[in-house]
Design a protein around this nucleic acid. Sequence first.
DNA 1: CCCAATCGGGCATGAACGGGCATGAGCGGG
DNA 2: CCCGCTCATGCCCGTTCATGCCCGATTGGG
Lengths: 253, 253
Amino acid sequence: MYAPERQQEILRLARDSGRVDVVSLAVQFQVTAETIRRDLKTLDRAGVVRRVHGGAIPVGRLDFEPDLAERETTAADEKDRIARAALAELPDEGTMIVDAGSTVALFAAALPMEFSLTVVTHSLPTAARLADHPGIQLHLVGGRVRHRTRAAVDAWALRAYGEIRADVLFVAANGFSTEHGLTTPDLAEAAVKRAAMAAARRVVLLADSSKHGQEHFARFGGLNDVDLLITDSGLSPEDALAIERGGTEVVRA
Amino acid sequence: MYAPERQQEILRLARDSGRVDVVSLAVQFQVTAETIRRDLKTLDRAGVVRRVHGGAIPVGRLDFEPDLAERETTAADEKDRIARAALAELPDEGTMIVDAGSTVALFAAALPMEFSLTVVTHSLPTAARLADHPGIQLHLVGGRVRHRTRAAVDAWALRAYGEIRADVLFVAANGFSTEHGLTTPDLAEAAVKRAAMAAARRVVLLADSSKHGQEHFARFGGLNDVDLLITDSGLSPEDALAIERGGTEVVRA
DNA sequence: CCCAATCGGGCATGAACGGGCATGAGCGGG
DNA sequence: CCCGCTCATGCCCGTTCATGCCCGATTGGG
């Protein structure tokens, strides 16, 4: 196994479990702790993990749930399928806006190398992932960065989205339902999502089925603003049908 | 078998199995390792595989950028000392702008946790580093993201810097000298640097001594625009004195 | 405040690398 | 048909790289 491969794998492990430690990595990869330390130093310098005594933690944690590890494993499967299904909605060329959120981040990370399009995002982790994608022209939306979600919000972000027009938006929501529409806990973030929705010709909502029926503080639109909902099979066919009656196409990946 | 045929086949193998190694390819194709290395170099230059010690990996399999880490190993020692010295210039509170560049990134990574201030940056790696720093209020400057430096440039960035006023700017330069001032290879990046300089009350230049006397395509200011230069002891005392006569304080870390 | 775990700099080693040179096959102009 | 040129390949050898080992310094939990 080559050093970069091992580093890549370490990075994956770190992102999956939220942390890695030198000794277990050394055992797992059958190398000495020194080598692992060197790998972690490389990853640290590359800015993708932060080195701590005894191991490392990934930078750019995607969401703010208290125990990230548990949560990642809970819905990881669904989110993965959703992300993959979303790939089918990509235009061959053109412009897309990518929202913040773990599902959307997974989707962005899954973009095949041969894709060549323009991406606009206000999500720091997504931007970091796409920055070295050779085919992608990345535009970063600025603003105040919220610690929790690592997303840019407020005046700069709102204005930026007010100035552009994209082919498609991939948006996330903490809660969605026909009655309460699309909701998220933070007002500032909701404002940005609303601005992004206004900037896109087509709105694709990526949300696993556990979000259905949930209702949070800030509302940023109705389901009728969404052209396509991609979720998992946890959404009952009846609910899906009800949503489709509202004019939103539904894909249950 | 012709060379391009062999390279095509190597690429196919690499994509199929996710990796190839020099020695087995040499055996398989009945040529020497040198030839395989030349093939891999060709494929690497074409951008379809990434060369690693012992073999190659198809692009897209590694989602972090080893190059960035590599560049940081050059003169890492000097840069480290410079970064540490720059910490002394931090205000206890207030606002600072952080430029893109490896030296400045090192400086940002070295920020102690207890610091509490507002940071504005157009550098993606720096933003990613500081996003989870609890004491820091981070503002991201948007714009088109340059692949090479992962920095935001162009209209959005220029406008953002035109709207703010910060206490101090930590800026990098690819070349600096009393005659030619501050230079960098990219025009767009130079424009952003100039805008950032105009937005700060105090300008601190972080540059290792190898940059002294260098001259690049795009000029974004003169040394007299710099209030403080932090460099390493590789800058001769005479040169330092000459710069100080121009009104710029010099620290040789 | 102490001690064990961890860290990181220095050194050693074997594999891999790559620049330079030589050889031989194909190519093209005269 | 000849001769010089280019290209692909092989070989040589000094250099670099990845890794492991050692040991003193540092860190952080108890």
